[in-house]
Design a protein around this nucleic acid. Structure first.
Length: 422
RNA sequence: CGGGGCAUAGUGUAACCUGGUUAACAUACUCGCUUUGGGAGCGAGCGAUUCCCGGUUCAAAUCCGGGUGCCCCGACCA
């Protein structure tokens, strides 16, 4: 991608209507744009990051058997009435059609997925069943907060599992837990994320949340000083001592919930009368679990964790581009044609090798501005071609997260096969 | 939903308390010349129903009333 062609450009000033660091940086660097409180556009850069996160999540979910589908957002009132959530789900956005039909805009999809799966599952032979989707969700939050961290319209991966019994649900629940840690590892949030005990429902006493430590987080968690088990504030009163190791001392931290897993049991299968026939020919309630990851929130959390005072520092797997190639050209230079030619050659070759390259080909920008922009946008690897580097037949290579750069022979660079070797 | 704050060119701010007719500055943008390794310089230019509605006044960005929007704190969060 030529940066001269990129929609959009960076903004110098800090937006006055955003206080969270992640929202400020994402807006200034041109990843997102605010339409209204808690409602954002994902711009080309932001959408690239979003797509990368989406890819990682769907890969890991498919590894544990999840099959992707896409459910509607417009969900008729009658479905919500079955579970009584038309009344009790306060954040449900309600809309009315021309003929007076009422709908709830999906904040979560039990009311759709249960009757859906019910149509295809009648025997124990059809179970277990795992389906998921990645979709825009709506919640009429009383108060939105911190840019992408708490929005009214947001992107979520929701996985639903259906089982014969609690044991099978239990087994799958543990597999999802592992898959989630794998995802967090790949997006580089694992170190900062704790699996916490959170309040459950009628079926199970507790659910689990994946809480990423950040001062911008809206939740408070207590971490056992001895074994690192974490507990959400709202249920901490039940645990004077750590339930695992009996330690009394906990560390209090602010965190943001990036994912959760929940054993729903028969909470939603009962209202829809969703039963299957077991091996003995008897009817039994289907047992269910649900597992969510907030993609847009995760993107915000990533920036909260991975940034410095100059800008964002994207982890490799989610970065909008692999390489930021920056041309620094002096109009008076005797070798300006050479700079032009060499940079283009590097750009073309790296692309042919499969790298995603953002090439800062802008002619009218000073070197300073280009470097400041590169730091703000935060692509993990930066390659500079200038008169200075060409004198040594080199380019300058720098990792965004490192302070020092190194010179690399152009001939070697052009032979590079993998990102690691540059 | 309770409390606090804010709203003025695309963006960030000033002027508002103490009302006075070219609404200022920076930046972004356009043109010209110069410049080119950490947000370059000079010159010229474009760009504002001062959030909306109403009131007071000879006169409102400024004072008063009522809305709306945005941010923050708290409560809430299947």
């Amino acid at each position: 991608m030529l940066q001269s062609q990129l929609f959009t450009k960076t903004i110098r000033e800090i937006p006055k209507d955003e206080e969270s660091k992640s929202a400020q940086l994402l807006i200034r660097a041109g990843f997102i744009d605010k339409l209204s409180a808690g409602v954002y556009t994902f711009l080309p850069l932001g959408f690239r990051v979003f797509s990368n996160i989406e890819k990682i999540i769907s890969e890991e979910i498919e590894k544990i058997g999840g099959q992707r589908l896409l459910m509607p957002t417009l969900i008729p009132k009658s479905y919500w009435q079955k579970t009584n959530r038309w009344k009790i789900f306060k954040e449900l956005f309600k809309v009315k059609g021309k003929n007076g039909q009422e709908y709830g805009l999906g904040p979560t999809h039990e009311e759709v997925v249960v009757p859906l799966v019910q149509k295809y599952v009648s025997s124990y032979k059809d179970l277990p069943c795992y389906v998921y989707q990645i979709q825009t969700k709506f919640r009429d939050e009383i108060r939105v907060k911190s840019g992408l961290l708490r929005a009214r319209e947001f992107e979520m991966k929701d996985l639903y599992s259906f089982h014969q019994d609690e044991k099978d649900l239990e087994r799958y629940y543990e597999r999802v837990k592992k898959a989630y840690f794998k995802i967090l590892e790949r997006v580089k949030l694992k170190e900062k994320t704790y699996l916490t005990l959170a309040s459950g429902g009628t079926f199970s006493k507790f659910s689990h949340e994946f809480q990423t430590l950040t001062p911008a987080g809206e939740d408070t968690i207590y971490i056992c000083q001895k074994c690192n088990l974490a507990i959400n504030k709202e249920i901490k009163k039940q645990f004077p001592r750590c339930p695992r190791c009996k330690e009394e001392n906990f560390r209090k931290e602010k965190a943001i919930e990036v994912a959760n897993i929940f054993k729903l049991g028969t909470k939603y299968t009962k209202p829809f009368d969703f039963k299957f026939v077991n091996g003995k020919g008897e009817k039994q309630w289907v047992v269910m679990g649900c597992y969510g990851i907030g993609l847009s929130r995760l993107m915000g959390a990533l920036v909260e964790v991975h940034h410095d005072n100059k800008g964002i520092i994207w982890p490799k797997e989610v970065a909008p581009f692999d390489i930021h190639l920056v041309k620094i050209k002096n109009q008076k230079s005797k070798i300006k044609e050479k700079i032009e030619r060499v940079t283009s050659e590097i750009y073309n070759t790296l692309q042919k090798r499969g790298f995603d390259v953002l090439y800062d080909d802008r002619e009218n920008k000073s070197p300073g501005e280009k470097l400041v922009d590169a730091d703000l946008i935060g692509i993990p690897k930066r390659i500079i071609v200038s008169e200075r580097t060409l004198k040594k037949n080199c380019v300058e290579v720098k990792e965004r997260r490192e302070k020092k750069s190194k010179l690399v022979k152009i001939a070697n660079l052009l032979k590079t096969k993998s990102n690691k070797n540059i």
